[in-house]
Structure formats: C-alpha cells, structure tokens
C-alpha cells in the first residue's frame, strides 16, 4: 500500500516534471518568438528611419536648389533693374530679404518712373514744337503783304 502510494506519488511527480518541462519549453518558444518579433520590429524601424532620413535629405536638397534658382532669378531681375534703372541704388538692400513680389513692385515702380520721365520729356518737346511753329508764323505774317504783291 505504501509502495502503491509511493508509486503513485512518483507517477505524479513524473507527471509534474513532465508538465513543468513542457511549460518550460513552451515558455522558451514564446520567448524566442517574442525575441524574433522584437528584432524584426527594430529592423523595420531602422529601415523606416533610413527612408525618412533620405526623404529629408532629398527635400532639403530640392529646397536648396529652389532657393538657389529663386535667388538667381532675383539677382537677375535686380541686374535688369540696375541696367534699366537710371541711378537705381541697390546697395542698401539685402538680397536674402527680397522676394519676387517686392521685386515685381520695384519693377512696377521703375516702369512708372520711366513713363513719368518719358511723359515729362514729351511734354517739353510738345511745347517746343508748338512754340517754334508759332514763332515762325509770327514772323511770317510780316512777309504776307509782300507775298501778296507778287
């Protein structure tokens, strides 16, 4: 009876051992899976980081390029302004603070100034043309009686 008890206890112990070992294996497996997943996630994150970094770099490069083009364009327009604008001063302007709308405004102002100048010159010319003709006529009138005699 005692033996039977012993036997059954052993069997129980065996059983328990078995169960314990199964559980351990299971735990180990799970642990492994978790680990694998962690590694995978880390890899994924790293990949994403690299992509983002690349994107960021690309964006920056493009922006730089655009800025450069813009700046070049502004410089070009400024040169144009300098060339057309008689005595147009740009020394006190910071080129980085200029954008195309201010340039456009400057261009408009310049155009207006040119037109004003032209109109003023034309006005002076007009007066001279008229006065010269009138002066000729005033003197010519004196010759009319003699012309009539002919």
């Amino acid at each position: 009876k005692e033996h039977e008890e012993t036997l059954s206890r052993r069997a129980i112990i065996e059983k328990k051992k078995e169960l314990a070992s199964d559980a351990l294996i299971k735990r180990q497996r799970e642990e492994e899976t978790r680990k694998r997943r962690r590694v995978q996630q880390a890899a994924e994150a790293e990949r994403q980081r690299l992509i983002d970094e690349h994107r960021e770099r690309e964006r920056k490069r493009l922006k730089d390029q655009q800025d450069q083009i813009k700046r070049k364009e502004i410089e070009k327009q400024l040169d144009e302004l300098k060339a057309s604008g008689k005595g147009f001063s740009l020394d006190d302007m910071n080129i980085d603070e200029l954008d195309s709308s201010t340039i456009r405004a400057m261009k408009l102002a310049q155009l207006e100034k040119d037109n004003r100048e032209r109109d003023e010159r034309v006005r002076i010319t007009a007066k001279r043309v008229d006065h010269l003709e009138r002066a000729f006529r005033r003197e010519e009138i004196k010759h009319l009686p003699e012309d009539y005699e002919r």
């Binding site: 002066a135 000729f136 005033r138």
Partner: peptide, 23 residues
C-alpha cells in the same frame, strides 16, 4: 513753303526762349 529766309529761321530758333516766354 515758308516765306522766311534761312537766316530768319535761324534767328527764331536762336531766340526761341524769348518767344516761348511770350507764348
């Protein structure tokens, strides 16, 4: 064609300022 001689025309051009003031 104008009844004025070349000389008269020259004189008028030269003195345009005075005529101009008048006009």
């Amino acid at each position: 064609p104008t009844l004025l001689s070349k000389e008269e025309q020259r004189n008028i051009r030269r003195n345009l300022r005075e005529y101009s003031r008048d006009f």
